[in-house]
Simulated scan of single mutants.
Amino acid sequence: MTRQLPAQASIVQFGTSRFLLGHAAAFVSASLAAGHSDQRILVVQTSSREEGKRKARALATQRHYPLHLRGRRDGRDIDEQWTIDSVADAVIADEDWDTLERHFVAHATHIVSNTADAGYVVGDDSSLAPVPASFPGKLTKLLKARHDSGAAGLTLLPCELVTDNGQRLKALVTDLARRDYPDDTAFIAWLETKCLWANTLVDRIVSAALEPVGALAEPYALWAIEDQPGLILPCQHPDVIQVDDLTPYAMRKLHLLNLSHTYLVHRWRQTGRENQLMFVREAIADPALYNDLKRVIDEEVIPSLATRLERESLERYRDEVFERFANPYLDHRLADIAENHAMKCQRRIQPVIDLAEPAGIATPGLSDAMRARDDRP
């Protein structure tokens, strides 16, 4: 027998990551408290990871958790603890699919996801499986059930750090739908015309989890969402913005902040500091690592990005990034950033090299990082 989930949990959040707990769910909580919205979140654990299942069970029991913000923003020291109460319930997809599907069909209006760098990998998965293995497979199966019920389309707000993430997710789902339901042209048309697939860009360092559930994060935050006709957001917050063009925000985030993280990991490993330095704040305080990173950013990255973006905005963002990296309160582990390192190099570093080459800009540091990317897992 399936259990009844709260009807007001119309934002279905795929993922229990500390990032989502400290970012999207925090914005929804603040919007609720300010009386700007009344939608709450259903958290869905989609993978087989025991840590995620444990957090989902904790959220289903207590439905609120602490968010600790520490650092500097706009020249002001911030040390605040908030109670996030936007989560109405949580469910583990593999264990209670029928409950999830029934709620998704009847009550969902918005979908939020953060399924990490490998979350868009489909492989040989099928939405025809009783419980598909991949996130796109699960989403396709749920959307098919919703369409077949005659319900309205949804707004999808993916938060994965993937260029054009909304359109990429749309392509994955529609491709699966064409393969698994080749004769259901109405379903394909519904996906393409009745659902809104928004490209989004997220920016906040959520450096640690709190037990049993919660997060420690920096005060800085951004959720930029590319506007399109009919787009209605599930919450209102000063750090949630609708923009005409996401490109400048995405390029700065991916190729300054995220590239800096990945390049620091490259040099951290290359210089044998893995047993000496644990956190980003320690790496940025190391003169050799800091000076090398700043040289690469100033001489290779910013000149390359300036072929597409305004240089002054790049330099302002660089200064913000370095201030955020130096936050003494955040234990942002270099080992965490090092996960999926080769994939991150390809996404974060290679496009800058591609911009530099036709402009005649030398990129010795970035090229060295690309050559070394496959040396370690």
Rank of each mutant, 00 (worst) to 15 (best):
A326Q: 06
N340C: 09
Q350C: 01
L355N: 07
Q346G: 12
I349T: 00
D319Y: 00
M370E: 09
A362N: 09
R348Q: 10
D354Q: 15
E323L: 13
N340Q: 14
I349S: 07
I349D: 03
E323Y: 11
R348S: 03
E357K: 14
A326M: 03
F322N: 10
M343F: 12
L366N: 03
P364E: 03
N340F: 12
D336R: 10
E357M: 08
I361R: 09
P364S: 06
P351I: 00
S367V: 00
V352S: 02
A335V: 13
D319T: 01
E357F: 08
R311W: 06
I353V: 15
P328S: 07
L366C: 00
E339V: 15
A362F: 00
V352G: 00
I337E: 01
L334C: 11
D331L: 15
E315Y: 11
E320G: 14
A362C: 07
V352D: 01
I349C: 03
F325V: 04
A335P: 05
A359S: 13
R373A: 08
E320N: 13
E315H: 08
G360S: 04
N327Q: 02
A356T: 05
D319A: 13
H341C: 00
E310Y: 02
S313K: 10
R348Y: 07
I349F: 02
R316F: 11
S367L: 12
L366H: 09
D354G: 02
P364C: 05
E339I: 15
K344R: 14
A362Q: 07
R347F: 12
D336K: 10
I337L: 10
I353C: 14
G360Y: 09
R373W: 06
R324C: 09
S367E: 15
Q350H: 01
R348M: 03
L314I: 00
L355C: 04
L309G: 01
Y317G: 03
T363K: 02
Y317F: 15
Y329D: 13
Y317T: 07
A362H: 07
D319P: 03
S313P: 05
R308M: 12
R308K: 15
A372E: 08
